[in-house]
Protein backbone atom coordinates (compact mmCIF):
# COMPACT_ATOMS: atom_id res chain seq x y z
CA UNK A 1 0.00 0.00 0.00
CA UNK A 2 1.06 3.60 -0.08
CA UNK A 3 3.64 5.15 2.19
CA UNK A 4 0.92 6.67 4.31
CA UNK A 5 -0.51 3.30 5.21
CA UNK A 6 -0.55 2.72 8.94
CA UNK A 7 0.93 -0.37 10.50
CA UNK A 8 -1.82 -2.94 11.11
CA UNK A 9 -1.80 -2.47 14.89
CA UNK A 10 -2.00 1.30 14.50
CA UNK A 11 -4.90 0.88 12.11
CA UNK A 12 -6.78 -1.49 14.45
CA UNK A 13 -6.12 0.84 17.36
CA UNK A 14 -7.31 3.90 15.46
CA UNK A 15 -10.49 2.11 14.40
CA UNK A 16 -11.26 1.00 17.97
CA UNK A 17 -10.69 4.52 19.34
CA UNK A 18 -12.96 5.87 16.62
CA UNK A 19 -15.70 3.39 17.61
CA UNK A 20 -15.39 4.25 21.32
CA UNK A 21 -15.75 7.94 20.53
CA UNK A 22 -18.81 7.22 18.39
CA UNK A 23 -20.35 5.54 21.44
CA UNK A 24 -19.58 8.61 23.54
CA UNK A 25 -21.06 10.89 20.89
CA UNK A 26 -24.19 8.91 20.10
CA UNK A 27 -25.45 7.50 23.39
CA UNK A 28 -26.81 8.93 26.63
CA UNK A 29 -25.84 6.14 29.05
CA UNK A 30 -23.16 3.84 27.72
CA UNK A 31 -21.21 1.28 29.76
CA UNK A 32 -18.09 -0.75 29.20
CA UNK A 33 -18.53 -4.42 30.05
CA UNK A 34 -15.42 -5.51 31.85
CA UNK A 35 -14.76 -9.20 32.38
CA UNK A 36 -11.19 -9.07 33.61
CA UNK A 37 -10.09 -10.86 30.46
CA UNK A 38 -7.42 -9.59 28.11
CA UNK A 39 -9.93 -8.29 25.55
CA UNK A 40 -11.74 -6.03 27.98
CA UNK A 41 -8.40 -4.97 29.49
CA UNK A 42 -7.39 -3.95 25.97
CA UNK A 43 -10.63 -1.95 25.72
CA UNK A 44 -9.70 -0.04 28.86
CA UNK A 45 -6.36 0.88 27.33
CA UNK A 46 -8.12 2.01 24.14
CA UNK A 47 -10.58 4.07 26.18
CA UNK A 48 -7.64 5.84 27.83
CA UNK A 49 -6.35 6.70 24.37
CA UNK A 50 -9.80 7.86 23.27
CA UNK A 51 -10.71 10.10 26.21
CA UNK A 52 -7.70 11.15 28.30
CA UNK A 53 -7.02 13.57 29.90
CA UNK A 54 -10.80 13.54 30.36
CA UNK A 55 -12.74 10.92 32.30
CA UNK A 56 -14.32 7.97 30.50
CA UNK A 57 -17.85 8.95 29.47
CA UNK A 58 -19.04 5.59 30.83
CA UNK A 59 -18.62 3.36 33.90
CA UNK A 60 -17.10 -0.11 33.78
CA UNK A 61 -19.57 -2.91 34.48
CA UNK A 62 -18.52 -6.31 35.72
CA UNK A 63 -20.94 -9.22 35.80
CA UNK A 64 -19.56 -11.30 38.64
CA UNK A 65 -20.56 -14.97 38.62
CA UNK A 66 -19.05 -15.40 42.06
CA UNK A 67 -16.96 -18.16 40.53
CA UNK A 68 -14.20 -15.97 39.26
CA UNK A 69 -10.53 -16.60 39.54
CA UNK A 70 -9.27 -14.71 42.56
CA UNK A 71 -6.49 -13.30 40.40
CA UNK A 72 -9.09 -11.68 38.12
CA UNK A 73 -10.81 -9.89 40.98
CA UNK A 74 -7.53 -8.67 42.44
CA UNK A 75 -6.48 -7.38 39.05
CA UNK A 76 -9.83 -5.66 38.53
CA UNK A 77 -9.71 -3.82 41.82
CA UNK A 78 -6.11 -2.69 41.34
CA UNK A 79 -6.88 -1.48 37.84
CA UNK A 80 -9.92 0.54 38.92
CA UNK A 81 -7.78 2.20 41.54
CA UNK A 82 -5.13 3.06 38.97
CA UNK A 83 -7.45 4.52 36.31
CA UNK A 84 -9.82 6.21 38.73
CA UNK A 85 -13.00 5.28 36.91
CA UNK A 86 -16.34 4.08 38.21
CA UNK A 87 -17.03 0.33 38.54
CA UNK A 88 -20.50 -1.20 38.77
CA UNK A 89 -20.75 -4.87 39.75
CA UNK A 90 -23.73 -7.08 38.90
CA UNK A 91 -23.77 -10.23 41.04
CA UNK A 92 -25.10 -13.50 39.66
CA UNK A 93 -25.58 -14.53 43.30
CA UNK A 94 -28.17 -11.75 43.62
CA UNK A 95 -30.08 -13.14 40.65
CA UNK A 96 -30.00 -16.57 42.29
CA UNK A 97 -31.14 -15.16 45.64
CA UNK A 98 -33.97 -13.29 43.96
CA UNK A 99 -35.07 -16.54 42.36
CA UNK A 100 -34.62 -15.21 38.85
CA UNK A 101 -32.28 -18.00 37.90
CA UNK A 102 -31.69 -21.48 39.25
CA UNK A 103 -28.25 -22.85 39.86
CA UNK A 104 -27.39 -25.71 37.50
CA UNK A 105 -26.85 -29.15 38.93
CA UNK A 106 -24.59 -32.01 38.00
CA UNK A 107 -21.04 -32.48 37.05
CA UNK A 108 -20.85 -29.83 34.37
CA UNK A 109 -22.78 -27.21 36.33
CA UNK A 110 -21.69 -23.67 35.55
CA UNK A 111 -22.95 -20.19 36.25
CA UNK A 112 -21.85 -19.06 32.83
CA UNK A 113 -25.33 -19.27 31.34
CA UNK A 114 -26.88 -17.53 34.36
CA UNK A 115 -24.91 -14.36 33.88
CA UNK A 116 -27.05 -13.41 30.88
CA UNK A 117 -29.97 -12.70 33.24
CA UNK A 118 -27.79 -10.66 35.60
CA UNK A 119 -26.39 -8.73 32.67
CA UNK A 120 -29.85 -7.88 31.30
CA UNK A 121 -31.06 -6.90 34.78
CA UNK A 122 -28.03 -4.66 35.28
CA UNK A 123 -28.63 -3.02 31.90
CA UNK A 124 -32.28 -2.41 32.82
CA UNK A 125 -31.45 -1.13 36.31
CA UNK A 126 -29.00 1.50 35.10
CA UNK A 127 -30.84 2.06 31.79
CA UNK A 128 -27.71 1.57 29.74
CA UNK A 129 -28.35 2.27 26.08
CA UNK A 130 -25.00 1.00 24.82
CA UNK A 131 -22.76 -1.73 26.20
CA UNK A 132 -19.22 -1.91 24.93
CA UNK A 133 -17.77 -5.41 24.82
CA UNK A 134 -14.55 -7.07 23.81
CA UNK A 135 -15.97 -9.72 21.48
CA UNK A 136 -14.11 -10.37 18.27
CA UNK A 137 -15.38 -11.75 14.99
CA UNK A 138 -12.61 -14.33 14.74
CA UNK A 139 -13.69 -16.06 17.94
CA UNK A 140 -16.51 -18.11 16.54
CA UNK A 141 -18.51 -18.58 13.34
CA UNK A 142 -21.71 -16.92 14.55
CA UNK A 143 -19.67 -13.88 15.57
CA UNK A 144 -18.25 -13.52 12.08
CA UNK A 145 -21.49 -11.83 11.06
CA UNK A 146 -21.84 -9.65 14.12
CA UNK A 147 -22.07 -5.92 13.53
CA UNK A 148 -19.86 -3.42 15.32
CA UNK A 149 -23.05 -1.70 16.53
CA UNK A 150 -25.38 -4.60 17.27
CA UNK A 151 -28.94 -3.68 18.19
CA UNK A 152 -30.70 -5.71 20.92
CA UNK A 153 -34.41 -5.57 21.55
CA UNK A 154 -35.87 -4.92 24.99
CA UNK A 155 -35.39 -8.61 25.84
CA UNK A 156 -31.71 -8.36 25.04
CA UNK A 157 -32.17 -10.57 22.02
CA UNK A 158 -30.01 -10.52 18.95
CA UNK A 159 -31.86 -11.20 15.73
CA UNK A 160 -29.50 -12.05 12.90
CA UNK A 161 -32.16 -11.03 10.38
CA UNK A 162 -32.72 -7.59 11.94
CA UNK A 163 -29.12 -6.46 11.82
CA UNK A 164 -28.46 -3.09 10.26
CA UNK A 165 -26.13 -2.76 7.32
CA UNK A 166 -22.88 -1.03 8.32
CA UNK A 167 -21.39 1.05 5.55
CA UNK A 168 -18.01 2.72 5.51
CA UNK A 169 -17.24 4.00 8.99
CA UNK A 170 -20.75 5.20 9.62
CA UNK A 171 -22.40 3.61 12.65
CA UNK A 172 -26.10 4.07 13.17
CA UNK A 173 -26.76 4.09 16.91
CA UNK A 174 -30.38 5.27 16.81
CA UNK A 175 -32.63 3.13 18.96
CA UNK A 176 -36.06 3.10 20.53
CA UNK A 177 -36.54 3.37 24.27
CA UNK A 178 -35.81 0.06 25.97
CA UNK A 179 -33.53 -1.15 23.24
CA UNK A 180 -29.79 -1.09 23.59
CA UNK A 181 -26.78 -1.54 21.40
CA UNK A 182 -23.85 -3.84 21.99
CA UNK A 183 -20.72 -2.27 20.60
CA UNK A 184 -17.62 -4.23 19.68
CA UNK A 185 -14.64 -1.93 19.03
CA UNK A 186 -12.17 -4.79 18.53
CA UNK A 187 -14.37 -6.78 16.13
CA UNK A 188 -11.65 -6.82 13.51
CA UNK A 189 -8.85 -7.97 15.84
CA UNK A 190 -7.68 -11.56 16.05
CA UNK A 191 -6.38 -13.22 19.19
CA UNK A 192 -2.85 -12.71 17.94
CA UNK A 193 -3.52 -9.01 17.25
CA UNK A 194 -4.67 -8.54 20.84
CA UNK A 195 -1.53 -10.19 22.21
CA UNK A 196 0.74 -8.20 19.93
CA UNK A 197 -1.00 -5.03 21.04
CA UNK A 198 -0.68 -5.94 24.72
CA UNK A 199 3.02 -6.49 24.18
CA UNK A 200 3.48 -3.25 22.28
CA UNK A 201 1.58 -1.20 24.85
CA UNK A 202 3.15 -3.07 27.78
CA UNK A 203 -0.26 -3.71 29.31
CA UNK A 204 -0.28 -5.63 32.56
CA UNK A 205 -2.48 -8.75 32.70
CA UNK A 206 -3.87 -11.07 35.39
CA UNK A 207 -1.20 -13.60 36.27
CA UNK A 208 -3.25 -16.65 35.23
CA UNK A 209 -2.65 -15.84 31.57
CA UNK A 210 0.93 -16.95 32.16
CA UNK A 211 2.26 -20.39 33.01
CA UNK A 212 1.89 -21.38 36.65
CA UNK A 213 1.50 -24.51 38.77
CA UNK A 214 -2.13 -25.40 39.42
CA UNK A 215 -4.20 -28.30 40.64
CA UNK A 216 -6.28 -29.51 37.72
CA UNK A 217 -8.60 -32.31 36.77
CA UNK A 218 -9.21 -33.63 33.28
CA UNK A 219 -12.79 -33.36 32.05
CA UNK A 220 -13.98 -34.17 28.54
CA UNK A 221 -10.39 -33.96 27.41
CA UNK A 222 -9.95 -30.49 28.92
CA UNK A 223 -7.92 -29.36 31.91
CA UNK A 224 -10.11 -27.67 34.50
CA UNK A 225 -8.71 -25.81 37.47
CA UNK A 226 -9.73 -27.57 40.68
CA UNK A 227 -11.91 -25.25 42.76
CA UNK A 228 -14.77 -25.40 45.26
CA UNK A 229 -17.04 -24.22 42.41
CA UNK A 230 -16.46 -27.34 40.34
CA UNK A 231 -18.64 -30.32 41.21
CA UNK A 232 -16.17 -33.16 41.60
CA UNK A 233 -16.60 -36.85 42.26
CA UNK A 234 -14.39 -39.88 42.85
CA UNK A 235 -13.57 -40.23 39.15
CA UNK A 236 -11.86 -36.87 39.14
CA UNK A 237 -8.16 -37.13 39.74
CA UNK A 238 -6.40 -33.99 40.89
CA UNK A 239 -3.02 -33.43 39.31
CA UNK A 240 -0.48 -30.68 39.73
CA UNK A 241 0.36 -29.34 36.27
CA UNK A 242 2.02 -26.30 34.75
CA UNK A 243 -0.73 -24.54 32.88
CA UNK A 244 -2.05 -21.19 31.74
CA UNK A 245 -5.43 -19.87 30.64
CA UNK A 246 -6.09 -18.52 27.16
CA UNK A 247 -9.40 -16.96 28.06
CA UNK A 248 -10.68 -15.90 31.43
CA UNK A 249 -14.27 -16.66 32.24
CA UNK A 250 -16.02 -18.49 34.97
CA UNK A 251 -13.79 -21.06 36.71
CA UNK A 252 -16.27 -23.80 35.92
CA UNK A 253 -16.17 -23.39 32.18
CA UNK A 254 -12.73 -22.06 31.36
CA UNK A 255 -10.19 -24.73 30.61
CA UNK A 256 -6.46 -24.39 31.04
CA UNK A 257 -3.84 -25.47 28.55
CA UNK A 258 -0.56 -27.10 29.45
CA UNK A 259 2.01 -24.41 28.89
CA UNK A 260 5.43 -23.15 29.81
CA UNK A 261 4.78 -19.67 28.46
CA UNK A 262 5.97 -17.52 31.34
CA UNK A 263 6.39 -14.33 29.35
CA UNK A 264 4.31 -12.57 26.73
CA UNK A 265 6.87 -13.40 24.03
CA UNK A 266 6.41 -17.09 24.84
CA UNK A 267 2.65 -16.69 24.58
CA UNK A 268 2.85 -15.02 21.20
CA UNK A 269 5.13 -17.79 19.96
CA UNK A 270 2.77 -20.36 21.38
CA UNK A 271 -0.31 -18.86 19.74
CA UNK A 272 1.44 -18.38 16.43
CA UNK A 273 2.17 -22.11 16.37
CA UNK A 274 -0.98 -23.17 18.17
CA UNK A 275 -3.15 -25.98 17.05
CA UNK A 276 -6.24 -25.03 19.02
CA UNK A 277 -8.28 -21.88 18.62
CA UNK A 278 -9.06 -19.78 21.65
CA UNK A 279 -12.70 -20.74 22.02
CA UNK A 280 -11.65 -24.37 21.65
CA UNK A 281 -10.89 -24.09 25.36
CA UNK A 282 -14.46 -23.09 26.17
CA UNK A 283 -16.70 -25.97 27.22
CA UNK A 284 -19.78 -23.84 26.64
CA UNK A 285 -19.31 -23.72 22.87
CA UNK A 286 -18.93 -27.44 22.51
CA UNK A 287 -22.49 -28.45 23.17
CA UNK A 288 -23.61 -28.14 19.59
CA UNK A 289 -22.37 -26.56 16.42
CA UNK A 290 -24.88 -23.76 16.78
CA UNK A 291 -24.27 -23.32 20.52
CA UNK A 292 -22.87 -19.81 20.35
CA UNK A 293 -25.58 -18.57 18.00
CA UNK A 294 -28.33 -19.82 20.30
CA UNK A 295 -26.78 -18.13 23.33
CA UNK A 296 -26.31 -14.88 21.44
CA UNK A 297 -29.96 -14.81 20.45
CA UNK A 298 -30.80 -15.13 24.15
CA UNK A 299 -28.77 -12.05 25.07
CA UNK A 300 -25.41 -13.57 25.94
CA UNK A 301 -22.58 -11.40 24.86
Amino acid sequence: MSKHQLDYLDELEAEAIYILREVAGQFEKPALLFSGGKDSITLVRLAEKAFRPGKFPFPLVHIDTGHNFIETIEYRDAMIKRIGEKLIIGHVQDSINEGKVVEQKGKNASRNALQTVTLLDTIAKYQFDACIGGARRDEEKARAKERIFSVRDEFGQWDPKRQRPELWNIFNGKIHKGENVRVFPISNWTELDVWNYIRREKIELPSIYFAHKREVITRNGQLMGASPFLNMDDDDIIENRTVRFRTIGDMTCTAAVESYAYHIDDIIDEISASKISERGARMDDKVSEAAMEDRKKGGYF
Partner: peptide, 14 residues
Amino acid sequence: IDVAYKYFQTDKRK
Protein backbone atom coordinates in the same frame (compact mmCIF):
# COMPACT_ATOMS: atom_id res chain seq x y z
CA ILE B 1 -27.38 -14.46 3.54
CA ASP B 2 -25.30 -11.83 5.20
CA VAL B 3 -21.85 -10.33 5.32
CA ALA B 4 -19.46 -12.66 7.14
CA TYR B 5 -16.01 -11.43 8.06
CA LYS B 6 -13.05 -13.77 7.97
CA TYR B 7 -9.52 -13.06 9.12
CA PHE B 8 -6.24 -14.58 8.21
CA GLN B 9 -2.71 -13.48 7.89
CA THR B 10 0.50 -14.49 6.26
CA ASP B 11 3.91 -13.12 7.07
CA LYS B 12 3.29 -10.39 4.48
CA ARG B 13 -0.15 -9.07 5.27
CA LYS B 14 -3.21 -9.25 7.48
